[in-house]
Structures are given as structure tokens and as C-alpha cells.
């Protein structure tokens, strides 16, 4: 009996502790000013958002649900919907550090995601805010360059040649990545850096199948710091392939629509021929029968 009382006391104590912990957890989530003000070293683009979406679906949906649908798990404190003002009014730095450090039931993701992956998550969360404009740090007078590029394909060495300009001057040390646009996603052909002439060479696999002329739909992305440019092109750079229909020609399972005319004609001639012979015999037999009757 005494022991039983003991247990009750312990349980009561635990409950009190949990309540206090909960109140603590609901107090403001303080970050240092420096953490609050930190900004992404990358410009948020569609690729970052897509990467962020994949990480989000794997690690965050179980509590936060899908952003914008308010289908988060009912817990105390509430995890909240990342598309809501509660999240969107926070600074990028605050979101970044809160994901990184965690608190209470929110796990610490510092060891799970590298910094760039965490920024992908922030980019994904921000993609639900139409009014959001990504703040860029003071670059000390340096302008973010606007890149343009020229594309060519050198068929002798099977390389895609990308020349990158900013204000008509060739740019060196710019990262170039080239993709083939497939039906459901982008296939990375290769990455390269521009040399001092602003030219980058990307290896292209000559066995890649193109269309009937060997054309491929490609997308080239150039980045350096906050500078970013994309270009779509349709270029002859792959093996010409004739795209055959899966039902072309005749198969054991083809229906009569695919049958050749000679077969249809000979089929009907045979059928009508057999019927004609049958009629001829029946009429002949009738004639004999009639003649037989007349004789009698």
C-alpha cells in the first residue's frame, strides 16, 4: 500500500514536470541577432525548391503536414503550418537556425542536413509565400552580374561549348551545368567551369538518343554567387533516332485494322467462293429433283 502511494507521488511529480516543461517550451524561441539576420548564400531557384521539397517530405511532413494545407499533427506546442504567417513572418536566418538547432519536440537537424540542404528547406517553405522577396546581403557595392550565354556543339569532340558573358565581357570561373529535359525530369549531362576566355566545355555522351534529326531539348544553367542565368535550347547534339510506334507492323495480337489488303481481299474471295460452290450444288440438286418429278 505504501509503495502504491509512492508511485502516485512519482506520477504526480512527473506530470508537474511535464506541465512546466510545456510552459517553458511555449515561451519565445530566442535566437541571437546574428542568427536572425543570416542570409542564404544561394539565390532560391526552382531546383533548390524541388530539393527542399524532397527533404521536407522525408523529414518534416510527419509533424508539419504539407504547407498550405494546415494538416499538421495536433501536438502541444503546435508544430504549425510552414505556409502560415507564424512561419512566413520570421526571417530566413530564424527559419534556418530553428531547423538547425531544434527545440523540445522539434528535432535538431544540424546533423541530418548540411547547410545548403537546410537552405533548400527554407527555399521550399518560402515558395508558399507569394509576397516573399529574397533579401540579399550588402555586397559592398558589387553588383550581381546578369549573365548571358552562347551555346554551340562541337561534334568532333562531342562537347557542348558554353560561352558566358556579363555586359558582353566573357566571364571566368562560372559554374556551368547542362541538362537534358526528359519527360518527367532533367538529366544532368555534366558540369564544368568557364576558363579565362569565358568558355566551358561539357562532355556529351554521343549515345544519347535524340529525335529524328538528333536534336535534344537542353537546359543550361550558369551560377556564380548570387548571379544566375538559365537558357533553353533545342540543338543537334545526339544520335538521330527514329521513334517507332509500339503497334507498328503486324503482330500476333494485331486486330483486323492492321491486316494488309491482300489478306482481307483473299479472305473474302475464299468465303464468297465457298458459298457460291454451295449454292451451285444446292441449285443443281434442286434441278435434278425437279427433272426427276417431271419424268414421273
Amino acid at each position: 500500500m505504501k509503495n502504491y502511494k509512492h508511485y502516485r507521488l512519482i506520477i504526480l511529480f512527473c506530470l508537474c514536470f511535464l506541465a512546466v516543461a510545456n510552459v517553458n517550451a511555449q515561451s519565445d524561441w530566442q535566437l541571437t541577432a546574428k542568427e536572425n539576420e543570416s542570409l542564404s548564400p544561394f539565390l532560391f531557384d526552382d531546383d533548390m525548391i524541388l530539393e527542399g521539397k524532397i527533404s521536407y517530405e522525408n523529414s518534416c511532413t510527419s509533424c508539419h503536414g504539407m504547407p498550405g494545407q494546415a494538416d499538421y499533427t495536433p501536438m502541444a506546442p503546435s508544430p504549425g503550418d510552414p505556409a502560415s504567417d507564424q512561419f512566413q513572418l520570421q526571417s530566413d536566418g530564424a527559419l534556418f537556425h530553428k531547423i538547425k538547432t531544434g527545440r523540445g519536440t522539434m528535432p535538431k537537424f544540424e546533423d541530418v542536413f548540411a547547410d545548403d540542404e537546410t537552405w533548400n528547406l527554407v527555399a521550399f517553405i518560402r515558395s508558399f509565400n507569394e509576397n516573399y522577396k529574397q533579401p540579399v546581403p550588402d555586397l559592398g557595392g558589387i553588383e550581381i552580374p546578369e549573365y548571358s550565354m552562347k551555346l554551340a556543339f562541337d561534334e568532333n569532340i562531342d562537347k557542348l561549348v558554353v560561352k558566358v558573358f556579363a555586359k558582353e565581357l566573357p566571364q571566368s570561373d562560372v559554374s556551368v551545368s547542362a541538362f537534358v529535359k526528359g519527360s518527367f525530369g532533367k538529366y544532368l549531362i555534366g558540369k564544368a567551369q568557364t576558363d579565362e576566355l569565358g568558355i566551358a566545355y561539357v562532355d556529351v555522351d554521343p549515345t544519347l538518343p535524340g529525335d529524328a534529326e538528333g536534336k535534344l531539348d537542353i537546359m543550361v544553367k550558369v551560377t556564380k554567387g548570387y548571379g544566375l542565368a538559365k537558357m533553353n535550347a533545342n540543338m543537334i547534339m545526339a544520335k538521330p533516332t527514329v521513334r517507332k510506334s509500339a503497334i507498328e507492323g503486324r503482330h500476333i495480337w494485331s486486330n483486323d485494322k492492321n491486316a494488309p489488303i491482300w489478306l482481307k481481299v483473299s479472305f473474302f474471295i475464299t468465303i464468297f467462293g465457298v458459298w457460291l460452290v454451295l449454292f451451285f450444288i444446292v441449285i443443281g440438286l434442286r434441278g435434278i429433283n425437279k427433272a426427276n418429278k417431271e419424268e414421273e
Partner: peptide, 22 residues
Amino acid sequence: YFGDANEDLVTNGTTKKTVRLS
């Protein structure tokens, strides 16, 4: 992975990564 054999590209449904089918 799902894709088009004519393009020789297939995309993973979870990671969205596109690879060569062959």
C-alpha cells in the same frame, strides 16, 4: 523509376533524379 525508353531516361518518383535507362 518511370520514363520514356525512346529518350532512354527514367525518373525516380521519390528523389526525382533522372538517370539513363540503359
